[in-house]
Simulated scan of single mutants.
Amino acid sequence: MLEVDNIEKYFGNVQLLYGVYLKAAPGKVTGILGSNGCGKSTLLKIIFGTMKSKYKLIKLDGRIIQKKLYTTGLVKYLPQHNFIPDFMSIRKALQLYKVSEAAFQAFFIEDDFDLSQKFGHLSGGQRRIVEVFLTIKTPSRVILLDEPFSHISPIQIEAIKKLIHTEKQQKIIVITDHFYRDITDVSDEIYLIKNGSSKHIQQLSELEDYKYISVGSFF
């Protein structure tokens, strides 16, 4: 169980997040929704440990994590930007992320990836889908995904959703994306960041109540 509480973030004198709370567990995908600039990516960076916040409380299995979460080796984070170096080969990235070549080739069965190919030689779409796959497939217990559905094709999005559904059984997965339909489709629990605080969404109609989106747009 991952529990995040009392997250407050200031940029200068401007407060972006106000006591944000979030709980995520294995077997369930926890989705974060919110308008552009509301602090979704900031929240993931604070949880991961690469961004400081004025206040935060992070617990894993009921134990308070005092150090930055990424230093524990228990978490992997997919940022919005490319993060694997251009010079690294697919094979080396698989080794670092402890993902088998067989699992990679089974997922990309219709693609002819050369495992010795370097990331700098991949197209933008290829690079993104490989980085998404590696992050989700890694054996780390906690997976933080920032816009995994951006810059990939609809067919790839559906394949990623299936992968998430499989991997969530033994992992804590927290995900955010501006493609809200995909988030609501893949998530078991949803939080909305509104006016700097988090709202636990029980019914999709609440998204309309909070004026985030018209529920009719889902259909």
Results as ranks from 00 to 15, higher is better:
Glu131Leu: 06
Leu134Lys: 08
Asp112Gln: 11
Ser198Arg: 01
Ile152Lys: 09
Arg127Asp: 07
Val142Glu: 03
His165Glu: 12
Tyr191Cys: 00
Tyr180Leu: 08
Phe119Ser: 09
Phe119Ile: 11
Ser116Asn: 14
Asp177Asn: 11
Asp114Gly: 02
Asp111Ala: 08
Ile152Asn: 07
Lys194Thr: 06
Ser116Trp: 04
Phe149Ile: 06
Val174Asp: 03
Ala159Trp: 12
Phe133Asp: 01
Ile183Gly: 01
Glu110Tyr: 13
Ile175Pro: 01
Leu134Trp: 04
Ile160Arg: 05
Ser150Lys: 14
Ile173Thr: 07
Ile201Gln: 01
Asn195Pro: 01
Asp146Asn: 13
Gly125Pro: 13
Asp146Leu: 04
Glu158Tyr: 10
Arg127Phe: 06
Gln169Asn: 15
Ile173Lys: 06
Tyr180Cys: 03
Gln203Phe: 11
Gly120His: 09
Asn195Trp: 01
Ser187Tyr: 00
Lys118Val: 14
Thr184Lys: 01
Ile160Thr: 14
Phe119Gly: 12
His165Pro: 04
Pro154Ser: 07
Ser140Gly: 13
Ile164Lys: 02
Phe119Asp: 08
Thr176Ile: 03
Phe149Pro: 03
Gln170Glu: 15
Phe179Glu: 14
Ser197Asn: 04
Phe108Arg: 10
Arg181Gly: 08
Gly196Ala: 04
Ile164Val: 15
Pro154Glu: 08
Lys118Gln: 13
Ile157Asn: 10
Thr184Gln: 01
Gln202Ile: 11
Lys162Gln: 14
Ile152Gln: 09
Gln117Ala: 13
Ser150Phe: 11
Arg127Gln: 12
Val132Asn: 14
Ile173Cys: 11
Lys161Met: 15
Glu206Ala: 13
Val142Cys: 05
Thr135Leu: 04
Ser150Gln: 15
His165Leu: 10
Leu134His: 06
Arg128Ala: 12
Asp177Ile: 06
Arg127Lys: 15
Glu189Ala: 01
Gln117Glu: 13
Ser197Ile: 04
Ala159Leu: 15
Val130Lys: 06
Ser153His: 08
Glu131Asp: 10
Val142Arg: 03
Ile152Phe: 11
Glu167Ile: 04
Lys162Thr: 13
Ser123Phe: 07
His200Asp: 00
His151Tyr: 14
Glu206Lys: 15
Gly120Pro: 10
Glu110Gln: 15
Tyr180His: 12
Pro148Gln: 11
Ile183Asn: 00
Val186Ile: 12
Phe119Ala: 09
Arg128His: 13
His121Glu: 12
Phe108Tyr: 12
Ile152Met: 12
Ile136His: 04
Ser187Cys: 08
Ile190Leu: 06
Glu167Phe: 02
Leu122Thr: 11
Leu192Gln: 01
Thr138Trp: 04
Asp182Val: 08
His121Ile: 04
Thr176Phe: 03
Asp146Gly: 09
Ser198Thr: 00
Ile143Lys: 00
Lys118Asp: 10
Asp185His: 10
Ser140His: 13
Leu134Gln: 07
Tyr180Gly: 04
Leu204Glu: 09
Pro139Arg: 10
Gln169Phe: 09
His200Cys: 04
Glu110Gly: 05
Ile175Gly: 05
Ile190Arg: 00
Ser140Asp: 09
Asp146Phe: 07
His178Tyr: 12
Pro139Leu: 12
His200Ala: 03
Leu163Gln: 02
Leu122Asn: 07
His178Ala: 03
His151Gly: 11
Asn195Glu: 14
